[in-house]
């Protein structure tokens, strides 16, 4: 082939490629074939304790750490009537603006309660600004079996300190009942 004209050499390359195994990903049909790496920084998640109470205390430390000013938090008081997290304070408004977020993860490092973590979810595209501002309900972790939907009281006899040291294992019947009455 060394002496063949340039044009033949060019077409030969194209022709031979037809017999190679394709590496094209059929996204989005086949996206699960190539999952992201486990430590990939994707969409955030607001976690829950095993009984369903929210971990976020509305402290705004994530918002403070964020270099892109993508996070907006408003804290509020947990009351006798409505408790969303252990302790005095919970995150009433929680927004992440994915038009701003650079997925750096500094917010995750700042979070004192491990409320905020990142998932592997990377499909963060949409056709309007409003849709890319994720609200608290878009970010909250789903209720797993054994959890009760807040607001409800803490597990009887335990304090917020016990929650932080991992003594809660799941929702008690009293919590489930209260949650259902809401």
């Amino acid at each position: 082939m060394a002496k063949a004209p340039q044009v033949i050499r060019g077409f030969w390359l194209t022709f031979s490629a037809m017999f190679r195994k394709p590496i094209t990903e059929q996204y989005p049909e086949e996206k699960h074939i190539y999952p992201p790496q486990p430590r990939f920084h994707g969409r955030h998640q607001l976690n829950r304790y095993p009984d369903g109470l929210e971990k976020c205390i509305g402290c705004e430390l994530c918002a403070w750490a964020c270099p892109a000013d993508a996070i907006y938090v408003e804290g509020a008081d947990n009351t006798e009537e409505a408790r969303f997290s252990p302790g005095e304070r919970f995150g009433k408004v929680y927004q992440i603006n994915y038009l701003r977020c650079i997925l750096c993860g500094l917010c995750i490092e700042a979070c004192p309660t491990r409320a905020l973590t990142m998932t592997n979810e990377y499909e963060l595209a949409d056709n309007s600004r409003a849709k890319l501002i994720y609200e608290k309900q878009d970010l909250l972790a789903p209720l797993l079996p054994g959890m009760a939907q807040p607001p409800h009281q803490m597990v009887e006899g335990l304090t917020d300190r016990d929650y932080y040291s991992g003594k809660v294992t799941g929702a008690t019947p009293a919590q489930i009942l209260e949650s259902e009455q809401e």
Partner: peptide, 9 residues
């Protein structure tokens, strides 16, 4: 003012 904001806000 309780829990309403942080100085940087």
């Amino acid at each position: 003012y309780r829990f309403r904001s942080r100085p940087f806000d």
